[in-house]
Design a protein around this nucleic acid. Structure first.
Lengths: 235, 235
DNA sequence: AGCGAGGGTGAGGCGAGACTCACCCTCGCG
DNA sequence: CGCGAGGGTGAGTCTCGCCTCACCCTCGCT
C-alpha cells in the first residue's frame, strides 16, 4: 500500500497512439492509479458506478451529445471529469464546465499539464486551456457546433434571462431568440435553459446544501428563473 | 550490436501525448531504432541529411504546403517517408504517395498497424489507410483543401492529360479546366502538372533504373507528357 | 384565461464558397 | 508565328448556411 492512497483514474477509449501516451504518462506518476483503461464510451456509466474513481478522463469526440457530460456529472458527483477534445473553443469548454466537468483540455496539451490538470481536478478545481480565439462556436461532438449568434445567446440563456430580455440585449425580435434557443437546445442535447447550467445530482447523499429540496431554493447564480429584477438594474 | 542492423527512424515533432505514444511504441520494437525524435519541422531537412534514416515519420499538419513532401522525397530518396495526418482523405493520401511518400496514416491508426507500416515502408512498399469516403477533397496542411471538382481534375492532370482532353472528359470549357488547374497548383504548392507526379530525385546515385537518365525514358505511367495519343483511344 | 417556455415548420435576405467562363499577359517549343 | 501551358483578374450563377422573423401547437403556472 502506497504512503498516501493514490488518486484513482478511469481512462476512456482513445485513439490507440494517444491512449498509449496517456497511459504511459499516468503510470509514470506514482500518485495516480489507473483502475480501468480503454473503456468504451457506452461502458463509461457502468465502469464509473463500479469503481467510483476520483477522476475520469473522457473523450469529447465520443460523446453523442454534449449533455451527456451533464448526466454523468449528475450521476457521479464524487468523480471529477477531465475531458479531452480535439481543439476545443472557449464556448465549448465553458459549456462543458457548466455541465459539471472539471477540466477541458485539447489534444495538443503538454503532457505535464495533463498531469497537473488531473491533480487539480481531483481536488475539485477547474482547468481550461489558454484562450482560443473561438473561431466557430465549437468543434464539438456529434458533428454539430454552435454558430456565432448562438454562442452569444448561450450565456444569456445560462443566466436564466427571459427570451424578451435576450431579445432586448441583442436588439432582435423575440421570435429570433426563440429560434436560436431551440437550435442551441437541439445541438447541445438539452431541452430547457435550466439544463444548460447545473447537473441534476440525482444522488441526494452527495454535494452540499440545497440539492434535492424544493427547487425554488437554489442559489440565485444558477437560478431557475430570475424572479424579477436580478442582474440588470431596471429597479 | 544487434543481430540485424535495425531500421533507423527519425521522428518529427508531434503533440506531446501523441509523441509519447509513438516513441514508446517504436522503442518497444527491437528492430527499430530512433536516431532523432521530436524534430521541429524546419529542422527536418537538416536532420535527414545528417542521419540519412531508413524511415522518417512526419506530421502532415506541420507542412506549409503539400509539395514539401515532394521536395523531401526528391532530396532523400533513400529515406522512406511515413506521414501522419489527422483524418486524411483518399485524394489527399493519393497525392502524398504521388509526391513520393511511402505511407499516409491517420492519427486513429492502431499502433500495431503503425509498426507494420514502418516495416513495409522501410522495404519500399506503400501503405494507405482504408478507404475514407473522401467527403471534402482533403483536410490538408496549410488550411487549403481541394474542392470536389478540383479533386476530379487532379488525377487527370497527374496523368498528363491536356486541358482540352480534361475539358472534354468533364464536359466543361477549357477555361474552366485552366481555372481548376491553377487553383490546384496553388493549393498544393506546385506550378505544373509535371510536378504533380514524380519527385525530381536530385541524387543521381539512388533508386533503381530510369532515374537521372533522359527524362523521356520513364515508365509511361508516371509520364512527363503524353506525347500524343496515350491513355485515351483517339486512334 | 393569460403568459412564458418549448417544439415544429417555413420563408426571406444575405454572404461565402464553388463552379463556370472570359479576357489579359508571358514563356517555351517547333 | 501559332499553340499549349501557366499566371492574374473578374464576373456571372448556384448552393448552402446563418440570421431573422412569423405562425402554428402544447404545457405548466398563476
Amino acid at each position: 500500500m502506497p504512503p498516501q492512497t493514490p488518486i484513482t483514474v478511469v481512462l476512456a477509449h482513445f485513439d490507440d497512439l494517444l491512449a498509449r501516451g496517456l497511459r504511459e504518462l499516468i503510470e509514470s506518476d506514482p500518485s495516480l492509479a489507473i483502475v480501468a483503461a480503454d473503456v468504451d464510451h457506452r461502458r463509461i456509466p457502468v465502469v464509473l458506478r463500479a469503481h467510483r474513481p476520483d477522476v475520469a478522463i473522457l473523450d469529447v469526440g465520443a460523446l453523442a451529445k454534449m449533455a451527456e457530460v451533464r448526466e454523468l456529472c449528475g450521476l457521479h458527483p464524487a468523480t471529477r471529469m477531465v475531458l479531452l477534445a480535439d481543439s476545443p473553443s472557449m464556448t465549448e469548454c465553458a459549456q462543458l464546465l457548466a455541465f459539471g466537468a472539471s477540466a477541458c483540455l485539447g489534444r495538443d496539451t503538454q503532457s505535464r499539464d495533463v498531469l497537473h490538470a488531473i491533480h487539480l481536478a481531483s481536488r475539485g478545481l477547474q482547468v481550461t486551456p489558454r484562450g482560443t480565439p473561438d473561431q466557430r462556436g465549437g468543434s464539438i461532438a456529434g458533428g454539430q457546433l454552435l454558430t456565432r449568434r448562438e454562442a452569444e445567446v448561450l450565456p444569456l440563456l445560462q443566466q436564466g434571462r427571459s427570451n424578451a430580455q435576450i431579445a432586448l440585449a441583442l436588439q432582435v425580435g423575440v421570435e429570433t431568440v426563440r429560434t436560436h434557443a431551440r437550435n442551441i437546445y437541439r445541438k447541445l442535447g438539452v431541452s430547457s435553459r435550466r439544463e444548460l447550467a447545473a447537473p441534476p445530482t440525482l444522488d441526494p447523499e452527495q454535494r452540499p446544501g440545497w440539492v434535492g429540496r424544493s427547487p425554488r431554493q437554489r442559489p440565485a447564480s444558477l437560478l431557475t428563473r430570475p424572479r424579477r429584477g436580478d442582474g440588470s438594474q431596471h429597479h
